[in-house]
Design a protein around this nucleic acid. Structure first.
Lengths: 253, 253
DNA sequence: CGAACCCTTGAGCATGATCAAAGTCCGTGG
DNA sequence: CCACGGACTTTGATCATGCTCAAGGGTTCG
């Protein structure tokens, strides 16, 4: 089944992912597995056909059977709040697990949609559960993943409840950078996968406010944004703003 | 201490809790365990001396070894956001698990403090982990607990990012009632364990705003509050407000 | 080439923060 | 038992942040 190095076997069993060769295997679930355990894990997961932009992975009516690992691309989760009104509650980046909220039963709390072309590994939760009984490292890693999600939500709570719009957006940008760094990309130069509308919905701010803030941040030389390409020019100052400091004026040329 | 009828060994080991006789055993971790499995679980947990109001259970420097189940009383979690400024990120009520954010390592994200006299069961996570390998029902219940926390945080996100202060407070009150109901109390009549200051910090609103809103809700006959005793008079209308509806005027006598 | 959709910028307005000052409840100790 | 101190709560007045409405420009995709 599993194979040493090359892509040769990928063609042979195109529906199976292979964790051994996955660029993200140091972030994803099998993190702590020994090589032979990895094969057991590898055997239960399935590579799905990539989702295209705007396609939905699951919604509240989807019965819960799988969790997913993002291999590349990104997704958003939206929860219907009032009629017609949706909030973006979460963004998923490469190496992150999707669908853990569904384990509790009673369906998924929201709709999860691809923001761009997105490849996922599909992991049947029943088999993951059984395997986790046999592999302590896997089990603990799964506990850790869920725990980290809870912890991250606590920090997010701080950012949302923290007053100013400036602080929220600054914190959001830094968090994105941090998460891109986790999957091997730059923490200071990246491409926003989501629209300003999504950012606004996520942070509880109007689109116009997001737009104005980005302009103001650029004037203050905190970051540079062209279309959706972002460069964080002064992460420390952004961190200060996220904690409530005022926007310092730009050095002025 | 509490036990009338059954096992004689209970007096022998007063520091051990006994899940079989716990009023909350239908909510807490052993939910799905058979009686003999329950004894295994029972053997690893320890009843702690109750915390008094204001005493802290753990803080970011506490090494992670245990999770806790609230037997009675309540706690709050605070995370330092900016210097000197703290946000209340979570309240813990009876039957809920405390400390799951710590599993991921790198310490707990905040300080957890008792809001009133609070009794807890202390569960060593290492032993829980090992036991969960042997008891599928326990393992799945643990997954479920963590999953539910994540899901609840998504809903909380909606409430926080949803605009008006009215909607936030209405949603908060309903959520509290729902959680009290889960542990066998009334969903519409309960005692607030936390101060208005804590509520404000949790919802990202000024204390004054909380106070004014409570007054306004009372005028509209949505609820009745005396000191910290709350009666929800019109839960459906509150639910409407939480979704963004305006406050209807009171029927007027 | 047109049509969505997304993004930006402007002007006026309302919600909730801030500052200020009573009033209330509680535990503590006289 | 009552008086005191401290923390919590309520209410009022003013002000600023960020929302709403409105319109113009850009990009992408069929």
């Amino acid at each position: 089944m599993t194979v040493p190095t090359a892509d040769s076997d990928i063609k042979a069993s195109p529906m199976h992912a292979h964790c051994q060769t996955c660029r993200l295997n140091s972030l994803c679930l099998p993190l702590a597995l020994r090589l032979d355990d990895l094969e057991d894990f590898d055997a239960i997961i399935r590579r799905r056909a990539p989702l295209k932009r705007g396609e939905t992975l699951l919604d509240p009516r989807t019965p819960f059977h799988h969790v997913f690992a993002v291999r590349c691309g990104s997704l958003k989760q939206q929860v219907v709040h009032a009629e017609g009104e949706e909030r973006v509650t979460h963004f998923y980046l490469p190496g992150e697990l999707v669908g853990l909220e569904g384990v509790a039963g009673d369906g998924h709390p929201g709709t999860i949609t691809a923001l761009e072309t997105t490849a996922l590994c599909e992991i049947p939760f029943d088999r993951l559960d059984v395997l986790s009984a046999q592999l302590p490292a896997l089990r603990r890693e799964l506990y850790r993943c869920m725990s980290r999600d809870i912890r991250d939500d606590r920090y997010l709570h701080c950012r949302l409840a923290g007053h100013t719009a400036e602080a929220r957006l600054a914190g959001f940008m830094l968090d994105l950078g941090y998460r891109f760094q986790r999957c091997g990309l730059s923490a200071t130069r990246f491409r926003l996968p989501m629209s300003r509308i999504d950012i606004g919905s996520h942070l509880g701010l109007a689109v116009e406010t997001i737009s104005r803030l980005i302009s103001r941040f650029q004037q203050a030389e905190l970051l540079h944004v062209a279309r959706r390409e972002v460069t964080l020019l002064a992460p420390e100052r952004l961190a200060g703003i996220a904690r409530g400091a005022p926007i310092g004026e730009r050095a002025d040329a």
